[in-house]
């Protein structure tokens, strides 16, 4: 009897998920031009690749045999290019913008009907993000293709195991990003300017995630400190996985799961406290 009930609930959940996803996907298709622009605005890793690849070139006067070590960053030209390309991909599919969507919904009073529905409203945003990632896919493939056309030597085929691990790592990275942002978004219940906090959160993310510099160039103490934050797992770890660089796989996955199991209860507790405080805007 109970098992039958569970089966029915799972079936119901599946139907809700499918309906949510397909409606959000249809919505996102309307905004394809915007999505393309968002994809373009993530080109920072390529700019940083330009900087670091100039540094990887051994300074004049040293014989080329010194190679990467003369450049002193422990990565050669090819590894650098692959790393930053993968960092770009990891960033593209782990972006979260729930703060902005939530703030707009809360300020315009759209949140009230969502709260009445028998569905945790955060799921709606999860579906929107996943749908947006699907619409992003063609643009990311296009940008990567242009990159390979310009630098054919960089082309490589990751092993199937690494690909599966990367997909999983990027999903976990997205989950961490989404939960971190949701915590800030829920602060909208208390303050109208929660999105300003998101700007502050972005700064350590930018410099510690591996988006502007591969973590290998950090001094060991700083690198160790960075690994006590969730940020290196959000870009650097999936990027290194995909680029085929040596990386502690099990430990990194464990750390990601750890962060998620810390952030998830906090998000839910904040949510419950926030909804209790909520008095609708414009109502």
């Amino acid at each position: 009897m109970r098992i039958w009930n569970l089966g029915r609930r799972l079936h119901h959940g599946g139907r809700v998920a499918r309906a949510l996803f397909s409606s959000q996907y249809a919505l996102m298709l309307e905004y394809r031009a915007e999505t393309a622009l968002w994809a373009l605005s993530g080109l920072l890793p390529f700019i940083m690749l330009g900087i670091w690849s100039q540094l990887a070139v051994p300074p004049a006067g040293l014989e080329p045999g010194h190679g990467a070590e003369a450049g002193g960053i422990g990565l050669d030209q090819l590894q650098l290019s692959r790393y930053f390309l993968c960092a770009f991909v990891a960033r593209q599919f782990s972006v979260a913008w729930v703060v902005y969507a939530f703030e707009e919904d809360a300020l315009q009073g759209r949140l009230s009907p969502y709260l009445l529905q028998p569905l945790q409203p955060l799921w709606r945003y999860v579906a929107a993000h996943l749908a947006e990632q699907v619409t992003r896919l063609p643009f990311v493939v296009l940008i990567a293709a242009v990159f390979f056309l310009l630098q054919p030597a960089v082309l490589w085929i990751p092993s199937p195991g690494r690909i599966v691990a990367t997909v999983l790592a990027i999903w976990l990275a997205f989950t961490i990003n989404f939960l971190l942002q949701s915590c800030i978004a829920i602060l909208c219940f208390w303050s109208e300017r929660a999105s300003a906090l998101e700007r502050l959160l972005f700064i350590p993310y930018l410099f510690l995630s591996g988006l502007v510099a591969p973590l290998e160039v950090f001094p060991p103490a700083l690198r160790a400190a960075a690994h006590w934050t969730p940020f290196p797992y959000m870009v650097a770890f999936p990027a290194q996985l995909l680029a085929g660089q040596p990386v502690p796989i099990a430990a990194s996955f464990a750390a990601m799961v750890g962060w998620i199991s810390l952030l998830l209860p906090i998000t839910l507790l904040l949510w419950r406290a926030g909804v209790r405080r909520y008095s609708a805007m414009g109502a």
């Binding site: 915007e34 968002w38 605005s41 080109l43």
Partner: peptide, 11 residues
């Protein structure tokens, strides 16, 4: 609907 062009510019 292109307000995020400015984000591309910023990047």
């Amino acid at each position: 609907k292109t307000w995020n062009v400015t984000e591309v510019l910023r990047a």
